[in-house]
């Protein structure tokens, strides 16, 4: 980052998000010291446990970031995640995880087709596909949690520890490395940024923008499916609505990490920090036993406040 001074403004959100994460830790530790005299937030085991829970959100956010970079949005994450989990648990055996991921593959291809070829606004197409997936799962399971349980491989990925570190955290890190590599070292990554900045210009300069957008949706759906498989392993089974609480936090994490919601700008490190920030904020609000009402208000106020600090957009676009 020091070699490319022209992307300095992109570092600001990263620094602010990092600073805010520290502030949260200090406030939380101060609170626990004053009430119980302990500092659970600074214990590695507690942090590991929080990050293990956060890894599901982190994987969703990594995929969401690919889509947001192209200037689109993927609202089908909740039921892609749930469908993948349900399919994986019902297939079972060695094919459970591939079956779950193939759900993501299909969803991503359909989303990509609808958005890039049919040119339906992504906001409404992914929403429609989310409803269809919900309908399929409700029709299949009868609206109840399916009885199938997660396979040992899924349990291992979500719950086990390797060298004292949760395996889920390794999966998140692996996804992060893949996304970072894609974004910074491949033509696909450069094409994502170009398409998000100005699709028309990208197309005229020979980028196959349809394939690029489809690729982004594919990445997002695969990440959501992976998160679904892991989450089913973590709770030992799949259940209705298990993905509902991942959509808005994933968008928030991407945006808090400095990615522009209209596409074309943003770095993966920011998204990673955004997820850490949201996970820590949530865990501190739980420690404080904050009622749901104040949680929602604080959550909203933090997002608005941080975005205001990040620096404001232009007064008039174009």
């Amino acid at each position: 980052m020091t070699t490319m001074p022209q992307i300095r403004p992109d570092d600001r959100p990263l620094l602010i998000a990092f600073g805010f994460t520290l502030v949260i830790l200090v406030i939380g530790t101060g609170y626990t010291l004053s009430t119980t005299g302990t500092m659970p937030l600074l214990q590695p085991s507690y942090l590991m446990q929080q990050l293990q829970i956060g890894s599901f959100l982190g994987i969703c956010a990594a995929g969401m970031m690919l889509v947001i970079l192209t200037g689109h949005i993927d609202l089908s994450i909740p039921w892609t995640l749930t469908s993948a989990a349900m399919v994986a648990t019902s297939v079972g055996g060695p094919w459970a995880i591939p079956a779950g991921l193939s759900v993501g593959l299909c969803v991503g291809l359909v989303n990509g087709f609808g958005v890039s070829v049919l040119r339906v606004p992504s906001m409404i197409f992914t929403l429609g596909l989310d409803t269809v997936l919900r309908g399929l799962m409700v029709a299949r399971t009868g609206g109840f949690a399916p009885q199938d349980t997660a396979t040992p491989a899924m349990l291992y990925l979500a719950k086990a520890k390797l060298l004292g570190v949760p395996v889920a955290l390794f999966v998140w890190i692996a996804v992060s490395l893949v996304v970072t590599f894609l974004l910074t070292r491949t033509t696909f990554g450069r094409a994502l940024y170009a398409t998000g900045t100005k699709e028309r210009a990208a197309w005229l300069s020979g980028i196959r923008t349809r394939a690029v957008v489809t690729g982004a949706f594919l990445g997002s759906a695969l990440c959501a499916a992976l998160a679904g498989v892991l989450l089913a392993g973590y709770s030992a089974k799949a259940y209705q609505g298990m993905g509902n609480s991942y959509l808005l936090p994933a968008i928030a994490a991407v945006v808090l990490g400095g990615t522009h919601i209209l596409g074309g700008r943003g770095r993966y490190a920011g998204t990673f920090l955004g997820v850490v920030l949201i996970v820590l904020l949530n865990s501190i609000l739980s420690i404080m036993q904050m009622p749901e009402a104040f949680r929602q208000i604080i959550y909203g106020a933090v997002i608005i406040g941080m975005l205001l600090i990040y620096g404001r957009g232009t007064r008039v676009s174009e």
Binding site: I73, L248, I251, A252, V255, I261, L262, E292, A293, F294, R295, Q296, I297, I298, Y299, G300, A301, I303, I304, L307, L308, R312, G313, T314, R315
Partner: peptide, 20 residues
């Protein structure tokens, strides 16, 4: 005046409205 994108600003204020 905050010059934020409406979609993300209202996402956050929506959480505030539900909290209230």
């Amino acid at each position: 005046y905050g010059r934020l994108q409406p979609i993300i600003a209202t996402l956050a204020t929506g959480a505030i409205a539900i909290g209230l």
